[in-house]
């Protein structure tokens, strides 16, 4: 049964209230598991809820909006690999654990090789997804070396991981591996786009709220047309990227390049809105106790993860040139 977008959004909003930003990581992970979100896009015959990309977008939009910490995007990449790769008893067992909330992780950068960067929560994870040109495999974290990197974005914990040992569960090889890795990465990009637009939505909302309460020159700042028009432009930018997000999330087949172009647009909008949010908040926006900076830092990280705008837009340009 397919859930409607509105039903999914309502459930997501209940789980993560956009008024409580950057909630506790452990509690958040528990909520994500209990909500069944990790099983959301797993086919029903593998024990999941059988939902598509639209549900995925709703989830990550909600996580982005409330600045929820944790490795949800990486976890879902592992789950995508397990459901899209060759089936075995071992794969089924690991998939079950992953859906139940056992942490597993993957690199959110586009790197290939034996040292992976931008791997969330590697210290708490049991398995690591390893994608190469030839192979998609799961490696036990116990056989890898993880080094935590302190990130500007306080809502995410990232590690560099050196892959070690020979023991791995191969999920796909050759052409199948390439197809599977495109699917996994396309979904990651969609998730990053949704996270970005959720964050942009929240950053704009708190800015408008602040402009309505802060008085200078005997009037609320929100009354100044110069500021209103900047907010309107941000609203337009977010709504345009949103329209593209929902269109791509409901399309029958999402190409990797289109997902990349979408993520490039969405993360750029996020960064621009978060940048403006601090400016519109004035001095208070520069203080560590105010949440504005959390949006800016997460936005910059989202711009960098999954391949940057230069990479994806050049690739999209080449494809459009060939097909126009």
């Amino acid at each position: 049964m397919s859930l409607s977008r509105d039903e999914l959004i309502a459930a997501a909003e209940q789980a993560f209230d956009s008024q409580s930003l950057a909630p506790d990581a452990t509690q958040s992970w528990q909520t994500i598991s209990e909500m069944g979100w990790l099983a959301m896009c797993v086919p029903e015959d593998r024990g999941g809820l059988g939902q598509g990309s639209e549900a995925r977008a709703v989830i990550h939009h909600a996580l982005g909006r409330a600045l929820v910490p944790g490795p949800a995007i990486a976890q879902m990449m592992v789950i995508d690999a397990l459901t899209g790769g060759s089936r075995s008893d071992e794969a089924d067992t690991i998939l079950e654990m992953a859906m139940a909330g056992e942490r597993m992780t993957a690199s959110l950068a586009l790197n290939i090789g034996d040292v992976l960067s931008a791997v969330p929560d590697a210290d708490m994870s049991s398995h690591l997804l390893h994608i190469t040109d030839e192979r998609v495999a799961l490696v036990p974290m116990a056989s890898c070396e993880a080094e935590q990197r302190e990130t500007w974005d306080e809502t995410r914990r990232l590690f560099d991981v050196r892959i070690g040992g020979e023991q791995r569960l191969v999920l796909a090889e050759g052409d199948e591996a390439r197809t599977l890795s495109e699917t996994i990465r396309g979904n990651m990009l969609l998730a990053l786009a949704a996270d970005s637009l959720g964050g942009a939505e929240a950053a704009l909302a708190i800015s408008i709220e602040y402009l309505g309460t802060r008085h200078q020159f005997e009037r609320p700042l929100a009354m100044f047309q110069a500021l209103k028009h900047r907010c309107a432009d941000m609203r337009v930018a977010i709504s345009l990227a949103d329209a593209l997000l929902w269109q791509e999330a409901t399309s029958a087949s999402l190409s990797l390049t289109r997902a990349g172009a979408l993520k490039a647009q969405a993360s750029r909008v996020y960064k621009e809105v978060a940048e403006e949010a601090i400016q519109l908040h004035g001095g208070i926006g520069l203080t560590l106790e105010h949440p504005c900076h959390l949006f800016l830092k997460r936005a910059f990280l989202n711009c960098a993860l999954g391949g940057d705008a230069d990479y994806w837009e050049e690739r999209a340009g080449r494809e459009c040139l060939a097909s126009a």
Partner: peptide
């Protein structure tokens, strides 16, 4: 190519 790809996605979002 970058600017073309970016514009193309923007046109797509306007259609969407």
């Amino acid at each position: 190519l970058r600017d073309f790809g970016r514009l193309s996605a923007r046109v797509d979002s306007v259609c969407a």
